[in-house]
């Protein structure tokens, strides 16, 4: 039984049919990278996985938390989101809270965990992303790379079953990309289940267990990244890798 599974997933933006029947299974501990051209629906797919976008047909199931078209009420959304963490391209830290408070807030407010316990959690999570000493720093006092690592720590503090990362290095200066990728690499090696969208192909090939190529709202080709890069099966994916160099 896969940890994450979607079936017949459809999503429209008005008349724009963005997701056209996505079937995706992700096993526990698996690292899955989604690639594809701009507008192919990668972000939309990730966002449906934690209910940031509603779906028009199909089913999403993450570790027993189920979301279907006709029963996407607040309670099932919440149940799903408790299983799924997300890291965004723009970090989206809460600017009025320090790094530590950013990480503490959700466990405290959403799970009702006691404050001293959440502080413990926050310190451990910040240490995990290499920012133990930045507990009291505010977002505007941190570099982009540091902010993104705090955002990762914030998501991890809710102990999600799976972490979604949507182009989390795209807003960073080139010299800051590696510190964030390093954290992701470490999470992957610790057995965290990851679904990410990235343009860092070398990184994707290196850490991914599975590569998913999206094209026009469908999973066009997927499989082992090394094999796919070596022998693309579809002309679309072949031209996609061709366009990378």
């Amino acid at each position: 039984m896969p940890l994450v599974s979607t079936n017949r997933l459809h999503k429209f933006f008005g008349k724009n049919h963005v997701l056209r029947g996505i079937k995706l299974d992700v096993e526990e501990g698996e690292v899955v990278t989604i690639v594809g051209r701009s507008g192919s629906g990668k972000s939309t797919l990730l966002r449906t996985l934690n209910g940031l976008e509603s779906i028009d047909d199909g089913i999403i199931e993450v570790d027993g938390a189920k979301l279907e078209v006709d029963c996407a009420d607040a309670a099932s959304l919440r149940a799903l989101r408790l299983k799924v963490g997300m890291v965004f391209q723009q970090f989206n830290l809460f600017p009025h809270l320090s790094a530590g408070q950013n990480v503490m807030l959700a466990p405290q407010v959403v799970k009702g965990t006691a404050k001293n316990e959440t502080e413990d959690i926050a310190r451990r999570m910040l240490e995990r992303v290499g920012l133990a000493e930045k507990f009291d720093a505010f977002p505007d006092q941190l570099s982009g790379g540091q902010q993104q690592r705090v955002a990762i720590a914030r998501a991890l503090a809710m102990s999600p079953k799976v972490l979604l990362c949507d182009e989390i290095t795209s807003a960073l200066d080139p010299e800051l990309v590696n510190e964030v990728l390093g954290v992701v690499r470490q999470l992957a090696s610790e057995g965290m289940t990851l679904i990410m969208v990235t343009h860092e192909m070398r990184f994707a090939r290196e850490v991914s267990d599975k590569l998913v190529f999206m094209h026009e709202g469908k999973i066009h080709e997927s499989g082992d990244p090394q094999a796919m890069f070596a022998r693309p099966e579809t002309p679309e994916f072949a031209s996609f890798i061709g366009s990378l160099n």
């Binding site: 940031l52 919440r78 989206n92 600017p95 807030l105 959403v110 914030r154 998501a155």
Partner: peptide, 23 residues
């Protein structure tokens, strides 16, 4: 309030009143 912050809070399973109060 920037939309990204609301989405971050949503993705952390905040209820909307919690978002109002804390975010």
């Amino acid at each position: 309030t920037p939309r990204g912050q609301l989405e971050a809070a949503d993705s952390l399973a905040f209820t909307r009143w919690q978002i109002f109060l804390h975010v």
